[in-house]
Every structure is written in C-alpha cells, then in structure tokens.
C-alpha cells in the first residue's frame, strides 16, 4: 500500500481521537480542552436539549480497571454538591470501549486569564476565599483534590468560582472539618500514565507515575505528594497547593496590577506552603480565616507582629477616625491659642 504522509498521520490521529457517540443521548459539538487522561468536548444532550461537557478517556481499559476508576471519579464529583464544584450528570461507555462522563458545561475563564482583569489585591483575595470554600467543602466530604492550580479553576460570567478536574482526587477517611484528614491508600480515584514531555513543563502539566505514587503539578504539589507518599497525604497537601495558588494570584503581573505581597500575606503564603505539613495550616478554613482577617485589617495568625507593625496596622484600619480625632485636637489647640491671645 501507499505510504502514509505526515499530514495523513495527523489526520488519522485527529479522526481516531474523535468520540463516536452513536447509541448515546449526546451529539458532539466541538472539542473544548484536553485534560490529563482525555479530551473534554462540548456536546448536546438531545433528550434535555442542553449543552454539556463530555469528558472521554483516551485509551479503552483492557480489563475494565480504567473504566472503574473513571466511574469512581464521577462518583466523587457526584458526592460534592457545592456551587464551587462542577456537577456530574451522567457516566457511560462509548461503542469503542472508552468511558465518558458528562458534567455541567462551564462557560467562563480559567483563573490565570480571569485575574488579568482583577486589579485590586482585595478582589483577588476574595476570589481566593471562594476557592478555599469549595476545597474546604470537599475536605469536609472526605475528598482531597491533589491537583489545585490556576488551570483547574474556572471563573464564570457572574464571578462564580468552580474548582475543576477532580481526576486525581482521593477519598479521605474522616469527615470532620478542621481535623487533618488522613489519606486512604486504597481509595485512589485515578492514576494516569505519565504524559510525554509533562515533567519538563513545570507550570502546566501534571506529573504522574505508577499506581499509588506521584501525581500533581510541579510548583503546586506538596513536597510529600512529589515524593509519592500517598499514604501520608492529607488536607494539608491541598493547603500547600492553595498557598502556591495564593502566591500566583498575588504576584502575577498583569496590566493594571502591580504585584504586592506585604509581610502578612507573605507569611500566610509561607505558612501554607511550609515544607513540613505540621507547620502548615491544619485546615483550609484556618487558611481562609487568616486571609479574611487580613482583608478586615486584623492581625494574621501566620505573622506575629512587632509593636511598630501593630501600630501601623491600627493606623491603617482606623485611619479615618484617627485623622478625625487628630483634626479635632489640632482645632482645639488652635482654638485655645487664639482664645489665650
């Protein structure tokens, strides 16, 4: 037969990737994005006449294991009913054996793009708090995300924040908020094969190895996660990622925004991303509370203040009243001087 040209090979690759939705209730619309394990397409649910996001695995599992794992990922999402977490609608298998699931189609921007238009530190911190709320909710339901990074956060047209891509999530034991959650090594939702070239891309890609070992994104994954210590991972691993995310949000230089990290924010970031999990915040709520305290002009737990810093913060917080009192006192002094004459 005639040899296949490079162009034809690319065409065959593209054609082979396209899912065949015959026999499902969905109609393919367009390719939206590529994730670690597969591709996300926009599709039309012909029964309910709505647009959905359809995630399809790349490779059909040979023993059903991969399919089971994707099903479990979908079940993790299904148990996380929260406005900050994208809801799953359906799970199924295509004619070619590939497993898919459908979820709400999120229209919006990735966090890294969205914050380009957010010019104040306060607004960025409020956005960060909403991410913390969604992650704290997942932790309270016993689920660890393990791949928090700007690319996995979407911001909708009304400012709603959605934490995406729970493909690396892990079910944790215990569900009490505020209590460090221990990882269940048997409850790994999904492991992915390492992607060609992934390890070299330190900001965008996820690094994966074999079963129960390393997954996450360099720069965002905790040191214990990078070492593949799956059994010791707990909520503080996600807290590390949130700390890295906070740093990203506050130091990303964009038009109209000058990166600024004062000592308190720097301390919050440092505490969240401490090398040892024991030195980090024990729960996402406490990280969120520290950020909220900063926003309210209060002292933060992560940074013991000197007297001078306390006075400076006190002045900043009550500047109006202090200036008002000072003005009043100055007026009184002037008045006294005038009357004495």
């Amino acid at each position: 037969m005639k040899s296949l040209s490079d162009k034809v090979i690319e065409r065959l690759r593209a054609g082979a990737e396209e899912p065949d939705l015959t026999g499902t209730r969905y109609r393919l619309l367009e390719r939206v994005a590529r994730g670690g394990m597969g591709v996300v397409y926009a599709a039309e649910d012909e029964k309910l006449e709505r647009r959905v996001a359809l995630k399809v695995l790349d490779v059909p599992g040979t023993d059903g294991d991969l399919a089971n794992r994707l099903m479990r990922e979908a079940r993790v999402l299904a148990r996380l009913e929260h406005p900050g977490i994208v809801p799953v609608h359906d799970v199924g298998t295509l004619a070619d054996g590939r497993v898919f699931y459908t979820m709400k189609f999120v229209e919006g921007q990735r966090l890294d793009k969205f914050i380009e238009g957010v010019e104040s530190v306060q607004d960025r911190l409020r956005l960060f708090l909403r991410i913390c709320e969604a992650v704290a909710f997942a932790h309270a339901r016993g689920v660890l995300h393990r791949d928090l990074k700007p690319a996995n956060i979407m911001v909708g047209p009304f400012g709603e924040v959605l934490v995406m891509d729970w493909g690396l999530a892990k079910i944790l034991r215990g569900e009490q908020p505020g209590v460090p959650l221990a990882a269940d090594p048997e409850a790994t939702i999904l492991e992915r094969a390492k992607q060609p070239g992934e390890a070299s891309d330190s900001t965008k890609s996820s690094v994966i190895t074999g079963h129960g070992t390393v997954m996450g994104t360099p720069g965002y994954m905790s040191p214990e996660q990078a070492r593949g210590e799956v059994e010791v991972l707990d909520a503080r691993s996600d807290i590390f990622s949130l700390g890295a995310l906070l740093r990203f949000m506050l130091t990303q230089k964009t038009p109209g925004f000058t990166p600024r990290l004062d000592r308190s924010l720097e301390a919050i970031g440092r505490k969240a991303t401490a090398e040892r999990p024991a030195s980090r915040y024990p729960a996402v709520q406490e990280l969120g509370q520290d950020v909220s305290r900063y926003l309210d002009g209060l002292s933060v737990e992560a940074h013991p203040e000197s007297i001078f810093e306390k006075l400076t913060r006190f002045y900043r917080r009550y500047r109006f009243f202090i200036l008002l009192i000072l003005a009043y006192l100055v007026m009184r002094v002037i008045l006294l001087l005038v009357l004495k004459r």
Partner: peptide
C-alpha cells in the same frame, strides 16, 4: 498491544502514538 510488554506500557505507548496529551 501486540508489541507491548505490559498494560502500563500499552497505555503509555497509546498516548505517544496517538499524540494524546501532546
């Protein structure tokens, strides 16, 4: 699959051959 030594290798090779992830 015929020329792969393990399921893991097959998954990795399939991604490479089809350009998935790239």
């Amino acid at each position: 699959g015929d020329v792969c030594g393990s399921e893991e290798e097959f998954q990795r090779e399939a991604r490479s051959v089809f350009g998935w992830g790239a």
